[in-house]
Computed example of a mutant assay.
Amino acid sequence: MLFFALNGSQTLGARVAAAGGYAVAAHEERDFQGGEHKSRPLVSVRGRDVFVLHSLHGDGVASANDKLVRLLFFLATCREHGAARITAIVPYLAYSRKDRQTKPQDPVSSRYVAQLLEAVGVELVMKFEVHNLAAFQNAFRCRTVHLATQDFFAAHIAAQNSEARLAVVSPDAGGVKRAQLLREALEARIGGEVSFGLMEKRRSAGIVSGSLFAGEVKDRVVHIVDDMICGGGTVLRAARAVRDHGGRSIHVLAPHGLLEAQTFQDFCASGVIDSVTVTDSLAPLAHLPAEPPDWFRILGCAPLIADAIDAVHRGQEISLSVACAPELVDNRQ
């Protein structure tokens, strides 16, 4: 097999390769005047099982659009030169949030991205914690692998809270299934009961509303789980509601940390969140302060991705079970 990590994803790529016990294959990316570019593998891909890692988020250096095009061109190049099978590993997949029509004449951008990946010959798309699992699976006609994070985060929570009474909260109705799966994984790991909560949320024209909260969180250590954090407003609303309902401490979990500089300031100013934990699916984080606050943690997801790559290459079932708590990583480089 060959494993490539495109520019902008080399930090995570190096961690995946180290966890899997193989090297990152050499490739070249060149920019030309006028904004054009080319990329190519520097080793032969003919007859090889090729895995290409690229997280498709805008990071201040390259936009999501630019990263998507670079990934598509590189995958097509590998197909052009005889790769036996091509797997695209996209820990964060751009446009996944636009997976349905909510207004007249709306696009379904997630399906268009799927069609582009299929058009260049991708046979498998691997994604780390999707926004909407049904929409992700239905968008693709090629094989998909979803690396869910419930056991990953359950191992982390259990290691931090051996005796506390726990609760899991979804900050909106769309994340209920994700929160329920985390709750079940956590109950199985600690061998005890974990309560559940849900925050009402409605969004129209960029305005978020809704104030109803349901769930038992009083005197409990509460974990609010979402698939991503961007501006932070959604989890802040839920955190304030949990605090109003007597939560003992409040911790936010999200696989994808699309945090803005203002998000860190808002979290600090709120005084209601005790910790925020994301993964290094976006490596490095564009707006991470030079000295990250003590309450901000980054967990390494590379072993989970490396295990999935190995299983796919060997034609085995993928296991997402986590034996021990994920390790913290430094994502400033």
Rank of each mutant, 00 (worst) to 15 (best):
F3K: 00
S9N: 04
L12I: 12
R15K: 15
A17F: 02
A19V: 02
A19N: 01
Y22T: 03
A23N: 10
A25L: 09
H27C: 08
H27K: 10
F32R: 05
G34M: 11
G35N: 03
G35T: 07
G35E: 11
E36T: 13
E36I: 11
H37V: 00
R40T: 08
R40A: 10
V43S: 06
S44T: 14
S44D: 13
V45S: 06
D49L: 02
H54C: 07
H54N: 09
H54A: 11
H57G: 00
A62R: 12
A62Y: 11
A64C: 09
D66S: 12
D66W: 08
K67A: 13
V69H: 08
L71R: 04
L72E: 05
R79N: 06
R79A: 15
H81I: 00
A84G: 08
A84I: 05
A94Q: 05
S96G: 01
T102H: 03
T102N: 06
Q105M: 08
V108I: 15
S110I: 14
Q115K: 11
Q115G: 15
E123C: 04
L124K: 13
V125G: 10
M126F: 04
N132K: 14
Q137F: 05
F140Q: 02
R143I: 03
T144R: 02
V145A: 05
Q150C: 13
F152W: 15
A154M: 07
A155G: 09
H156R: 13
I157G: 06
I157R: 06
A164G: 05
R165V: 01
R165C: 00
L166C: 03
A167R: 08
V168D: 01
D172W: 08
G175D: 06
V176Y: 09
Q180N: 06
L186Q: 12
R189K: 14
R189Q: 07
I190W: 00
F196M: 12
E200F: 10
R203Y: 03
V208H: 02
A214I: 15
V221Q: 09
V222N: 04
M228E: 02
I229R: 02
L236T: 05
R237M: 12
A239G: 12
A239P: 13
A239V: 14
G246K: 04
S249M: 09
S249A: 15
H251E: 11
P255K: 12
E260C: 06
T263E: 08
D266G: 00
C268Q: 15
C268N: 15
A269V: 04
S270M: 10
G271M: 14
T277Q: 03
T277D: 04
D280H: 01
S281V: 04
H287G: 02
R297A: 06
C301Q: 11
C301W: 07
D307I: 02
H313Y: 05
I318W: 01
A325F: 13
V329R: 13
Q333P: 13
